[in-house]
Design a protein around this nucleic acid. Sequence first.
DNA 1: CTTGACGTGTGATTTTATAACATACATTTA
DNA 2: TAAATGTATGTTATAAAATCACACGTCAAG
Lengths: 173, 173
Amino acid sequence: MTVAKQRDTKPSAKTAFVTHDHAGCAAGTLHRAQEAAREKGVRMTPVRQRALEILLEEHRAMGAYEVLDRLAADGFGNQPPVAYRALEFLVENGLAHRVRRLNAFAACMRPGEDHAPVFLICRACGAVAEAGADEVRSALLDAAARHNFTVERATVEALGLCPRCVDGAEAVL
Amino acid sequence: MTVAKQRDTKPSAKTAFVTHDHAGCAAGTLHRAQEAAREKGVRMTPVRQRALEILLEEHRAMGAYEVLDRLAADGFGNQPPVAYRALEFLVENGLAHRVRRLNAFAACMRPGEDHAPVFLICRACGAVAEAGADEVRSALLDAAARHNFTVERATVEALGLCPRCVDGAEAVL
DNA sequence: CTTGACGTGTGATTTTATAACATACATTTA
DNA sequence: TAAATGTATGTTATAAAATCACACGTCAAG
Ligand SMILES: [Zn+2]
Ligand SMILES: [Zn+2]
Ligand SMILES: [Zn+2]
Ligand SMILES: [Zn+2]
């Protein structure tokens, strides 16, 4: 089937800002996330999977309450902990990320790959891309080392304009 | 006077995690912040200055409500906007930074210097250091450029253990 | 003196996140 | 299978963080 072909396609790492077969992109990522969960021995329950599917619908970050509304509409609980717990599970297990600048969550595009994500957030269209950036991470570790600081987790987020919005958007800085 | 000598001392860039003359450190930074505000033509009103002084008391980040309590105790208003407005002013004018991981604010140690701050946040003692890290910034810009993304603002924060806490703190990762 | 920009005070509300407890389901153990 | 145990979900309530909307005061330009 044609979907299966898309499913195992390696992501091009810059899909978020260009038009692409997102149905296949999302299905493939979901599939890889399920695989990662299975290998990790954690349970991908219905709420959790649905929450991930919701995050995967678009390349943008969603607030917990927005996810909650969607989950509730699908027959799951409608209280904050329902969404927060599902999202926490996804983040803990590397299937989603928290985007601190937006107080929101985004599906991970490389589930199970143990990567160091850098987020590129378009302030005009809200698109969020997950850029792999080992150089950023190692530069950060170097800087920390100069202060004798031991890094355990890092947040790297850039706000700006994606290639589609860079023309025709008013400057902010 | 001895304070004046401290006031114009350039910060060593790694003061936060080592014992130092913090009274002089704070006074000097406040002085430089006032200077920066004057040069920029913005008004350092009483609330704003007091808010900065409060942030400068320790090398850690403070929540808006914590700052608010302190301001209220000093006779200023006791409603959230009082603190948020003062903090927003400080951030907008480069006299303080927002630490997103903590939903908190920290005084800038290089007011008026137009720098690219990287925060090192100790999860054990709460100390926050502002590490200059041009390499991190340029690596981030490179990564963004590969996606044709235009960076306007960036957040780089590392959570971990400072040199004083690295011994005798349980692992978390 | 009047106008308008800016800053501050205050009450109310919105948005984001957790605490605490009860119930349901699943996996192990007997 | 039945009991026991751990894990997941549902629900009520509350806490924490941030913003809105409006009134009042100050000060400097016209
Ligand atoms: Zn896609
Ligand atoms: Zn965009
Ligand atoms: Zn100091
Ligand atoms: Zn520490």
